[in-house]
Design a protein around this nucleic acid. Structure first.
Lengths: 200, 200
DNA sequence: GTCTATATTTCGATAGAC
DNA sequence: GTCTATCGAAATATAGAC
């Protein structure tokens, strides 16, 4: 008989959970919370729908787990602002990373947009997504303010500048997700282009 | 006894239908298709849910009617491109109108975004929204190309320029809708600001 | 034209076999 | 750990009273 290897078992369990979660991200992003059946997630992850309930207590728990993950990713992005450098360069780096995330994990942005526009489903989810986001907002506003002092950004409320950049990134995520489905691809956009929105 | 006035009756019927449709737009935009119950729409329109079925065959029919309306509104926007004027001025006017629409009918943009990112629900809905949109796309691309020839816009595929502008507008619609709910308002953005994305 | 009551379906969640 | 079978709630859509 093969001996029990708890560590190995645990790893396998984590992997299964991870597989289900990644499958759920795609299905939830492109079908929406309410329209997504547990059966859809199970099918995408190639397991039975009973097994999904073995790993997650409910559909909502899956959604919240994803919100958590997105919030953490947003918080991680912020780190690029802490690195030394001129304000313009910091903002450029930040935008570059966000654009890379849009390219590599479009589902995350689509989910975030969904959470922003959908009421009821995501009261707690939003909180998770934006605890990472709020601090990033603050940090970004400070860097923008520094850039304004140096004359590299236009005058005005730095937080409004941030909203503008954020809106542009989210808009790109949507249009890009859509353009993939509809055939005609949208070309990648550079951080420099986005930054024009707040330059003198 | 009051005589039958068919014209009057027809008008009332149209009004009821219109009321239900407008109520549906708001509920659907902020709850999403699947999460919206007929009862929600009925409550928003202050009628019984049975009456909703009297005017519309199904939830899907309501959704398609809204898609149709949004598509027509998009087509109407295009008219500003047909007016005489320099390319830059035409694009500015177009953006101005789109921004006004975002301000006045945010539900429409939120719905359009939903239709763009949601699969399954809206195969036919998308078609309706974008038959108006496609032609507008073409017209816009031509004006942008003329502007490039005149040196007022950056070189590059004019259609990609259009996508970029379109993405920015949609992103604004989302962030603005969200900022309303979350308290901190996002300030209005000018057409000139958006246009910087494609200027030299 | 408008409402209330109900039939039908669908889906989230659980129980239990393997 | 994984699956199949099933319960029960909820929501779409319909029927019929007023």
């Amino acid at each position: 008989m093969s001996p029990r290897i708890p560590a190995e078992n645990k790893r396998l369990k984590e992997e299964r959970k991870e597989e289900i979660l990644q499958a759920a991200a795609k299905v939830l992003a492109y079908k929406g919370y309410a329209a997504t059946k547990i059966a859809d997630i199970a099918a995408a992850a190639k397991v039975s729908h009973g097994l999904v309930y073995h790993y997650f207590k409910s559909k909502e728990e899956i959604y919240l787990a994803l919100a958590d993950r997105i919030g953490q990713a947003a918080a991680a992005l912020r780190l690029s602002l802490a690195q030394p450098g001129a304000p313009r360069e910091k903002v450029r780096m930040m935008l570059e990373r966000m654009l890379a995330a849009v390219r590599d994990y479009p589902e995350h942005y689509v989910l975030a947009v969904q959470m922003m526009t959908t009421e009821g489903v995501a009261p707690a989810a939003l909180e998770k997504v934006f605890t990472g986001g709020r601090e990033g907002q603050e940090a970004m506003a400070q860097v923008i303010a520094a850039g304004q002092a140096a004359g590299v950004f236009r005058p005005g409320d730095p937080r409004q500048h941030f909203y503008l950049l954020y809106a542009a990134i989210n808009g790109l995520a949507i249009v890009q997700a859509f353009s993939r489905r509809s055939g005609q691809m949208m070309a990648d956009v550079s951080a420099e282009t986005i930054m024009r929105l707040i330059e003198p």
